[in-house]
C-alpha cells in the first residue's frame, strides 16, 4: 500500500499539535521524513524547533507515545528506539526520530554522543 501524501501532511500537523500540547509551548515541526539506511534501519524523523534537551529529559516518556504512533502508522510497527538529536552544543534539539533498528545499530544508538534516547 503506497503512503497517502495527504495523510503524511496530516501526521506532521498532528505531531506539531501534540508536541506543543505536551511541552506546553509552541513546537514547530518543519519536516516529517521517512528514511531507510544502508545498514537496514528504517524510521521516521521529525525536524523540530523550540525543543531543548531538558524537554526531552523531562517529557520523554510522553513524547514516546507521539513518536510511536507516527512510526506505527507510516511503517506498520512501533519503533524499537526513539531519540532526539541535538545541535553541537547539546542544548537545542534538532530532530526527534523513531527507528526500527537493524541488529548492528540497536546497541549503538543509546551511546551516540549527539542523541538522547527516550
Amino acid at each position: 500500500m503506497p503512503l497517502d501524501p495527504a495523510r503524511l501532511v496530516e501526521l506532521r500537523r498532528e505531531a506539531e499539535r501534540r508536541f506543543s500540547e505536551t511541552l506546553a509551548k509552541p513546537v514547530g515541526v518543519l519536516q516529517l521524513t521517512v528514511f531507510a539506511m544502508p545498514c537496514g534501519c528504517t524510521g521516521v524523523s521529525l525536524e523540530v524547533r523550540n525543543v531543548v534537551r531538558e524537554d526531552v529529559e523531562v517529557f520523554g516518556p510522553r513524547m514516546k507515545g507521539i513518536v510511536d504512533e507516527v512510526v506505527r502508522e507510516v511503517l506498520g510497527e512501533a519503533p524499537d528506539v526513539r531519540y532526539a538529536r541535538t545541535s553541537p552544543t547539546g542544548v537545542d534539539v534538532v530532530s526527534i526520530a523513531g527507528r526500527l533498528t537493524c541488529e548492528g545499530c540497536r546497541d549503538e544508538i543509546p551511546s551516540a554522543a549527539d542523541l538522547i534516547t527516550f
Binding site: 506532521r12 500537523r13 498532528e14 505531531a15 506539531e16 499539535r17 501534540r18 508536541f19 506543543s20 500540547e21 511541552l23 506546553a24 509551548k25 509552541p26 513546537v27 514547530g28 515541526v29
Partner: peptide, 20 residues
C-alpha cells in the same frame, strides 16, 4: 497567528501560549 498544528494546539489561532 499560528498555522497548522500550532494553531490546533492553541485552539483560537491567536498567539500567546499553549495550554498545558
Amino acid at each position: 497567528r499560528f498555522l497548522g498544528g500550532l494553531k490546533d494546539a492553541v485552539g483560537s489561532g491567536e498567539t500567546g501560549g499553549v495550554e498545558a
